[in-house]
Design a protein around this nucleic acid. Structure first.
Length: 378
RNA sequence: GUGGGUAUGGCGCAGUUGGCUAGCGCGCCAGAUUGUGGCUCUGGAGGCCGAGGGUUCGAGUCCCUCUACCCACC
């Protein structure tokens, strides 16, 4: 059922089609981030269809603490729960080990957190993460990893990555067991492994080789965009990608700006996700082909133009910068919603343009022109 | 009309027994934010301290007059 069909290559850039039980994903793709089974900013699944969202990303940890993965399972799994029938990728909770630092204790078996909702102690290891993701029934489950800080020293990173590798073996074993159970929501749930190693090329390389040998459904590069420079990030992608299988999807986790995405596609990445379009949208920062605008700025007070002339998103077809600015300043929910709709449409449309450019073997030219426009503010 | 109270940046307030370039919250103007806590953080602009006079080396602080507003009583 699952098949990664490589359609075209343009340099290192890949154009592929990924067939899953929940439908086909055209790559390169940007996954729209809906941590708690919803895109923040009051977007509905109808909205997501309207703005070209192919994959929605959701989060293991967040759904485990609320409403509880058992509840989602009883309600038929995350697709039925959200009323979204296209692919869903669930992040493993591994990143929360890193982002909720201070609230956690890492051991070989797993990690003890304090819930950010009510403070209660939660234990999560590879098996727990896989069980939760299985209960959710997402299309793609992510391995439970540790995202070490970019500035961590080499010794710490070596130990951390070794443990992440052992965790990955446990994830694989567990998901195979879960997929073969009778009452499993999605018996064809896929598992992506995650490459780690901070900014150390040799650790990254070794780790990439090891996880590739484990023959997983896809491969992510994690632990980037967490404090290192853009140049370091691009170098690491160039270091790692050659060691990952060509006939499997690659996923750069948590990245990034439109410019980051263009650079990473050029280096062979298929999947992306980032909170920027939604979080920035909520904060009134909107993307255009001529740079980013901050709609809170006073200069838009009397600006009756759409966010971007010619944009076909639901927001730009009807509403002005001045009106959206007013909504944002008045803290009206509609203000955030209109900005998030526009931003996700912008990202999804950019990915479509990228796919077309690769199809035409014209990616380099497309990228140059796009970056030239974006450089005004992105 | 009488008695009491209050006047400090757009709004709400602090300003100790008079003592260096008058502070705070909100708002405003900008900037951050990369596998999301609708959060948070960082800068910045803006005040002849109601008006006038006086005491003092020195007054937002003390005294006098006036003005505006608030409360009570007539």
């Amino acid at each position: 059922m699952t098949e990664y069909k490589l359609l075209t290559c343009d340099g290192s850039a890949k154009r592929a089609q990924y067939n899953t039980v929940h439908g086909t994903i055209q790559t390169p793709v940007f996954m729209n981030v809906g941590t708690a089974a919803a895109i923040k900013g009051a977007l509905s699944t109808e909205d997501l269809e309207r703005i070209g969202c192919q994959v929605e990303l959701s989060n293991t940890y967040h759904l485990h603490v609320r409403p509880g993965d058992e509840i989602v399972k009883k309600l038929g799994g995350i697709h039925k729960f959200m009323n979204w029938n296209r692919p869903v990728l669930t992040d493993s909770g591994g990143f929360q080990v890193f982002s909720l630092a201070g609230l956690r204790k890492i051991k070989e078996e797993g990690v003890t957190f304090n819930s950010h909702i009510d403070g209660r102690k939660i234990f999560m290891g590879p098996e727990e993460s896989m069980t939760i993701q299985s209960n959710l029934g997402s299309t793609i489950a992510m391995a439970f990893d540790e995202c070490a800080p970019a500035l961590a020293d080499k010794k710490y990173v070596t130990n951390s990555v070794d443990r992440t590798t052992r965790w990955l073996e446990r994830c694989k074993k567990k998901i195979n067991e879960l997929n073969s159970l009778d009452d499993t929501v999605n018996k064809e749930q896929l598992l992506f492994g995650i490459n780690q190693g901070a900014i150390y090329a040799d650790i990254r390389k070794e780790h990439a080789k090891k996880i590739t040998d484990m023959d997983l459904d896809g491969y992510a590069i994690g632990g980037l965009a967490v404090g290192e420079t853009h140049e370091q990030m691009y170098e690491i992608i160039e270091t790692v990608v050659p060691y990952l299988p060509k006939d499997k999807p690659t996923y750069l986790m948590g990245v990034g700006t439109p410019a980051n995405i263009l650079e990473a596609v050029e280096r062979g990445i298929d999947f992306f996700d980032c909170v920027y379009p939604s979080r920035n949208g909520r904060h009134g920062h909107v993307y255009t082909n001529l740079g980013k605008l901050n709609l809170f700025n006073q200069r838009y007070e009397l600006d009756d133009r759409p966010i971007e002339e010619g944009c076909k998103c639901p927001t730009c077809k009807r509403y002005s910068r001045a009106y959206i600015r007013h909504l944002l300043k008045a803290k009206e929910m509609l203000g955030m919603r209109l900005c998030v709709l526009h931003n996700l449409y912008f990202y999804n449309t950019m990915m479509e343009e990228i796919r077309d450019a690769i199809d035409r073997h014209d990616f380099a030219e497309y990228k140059r022109n796009k970056l030239d426009g974006l450089s005004h503010g992105c």
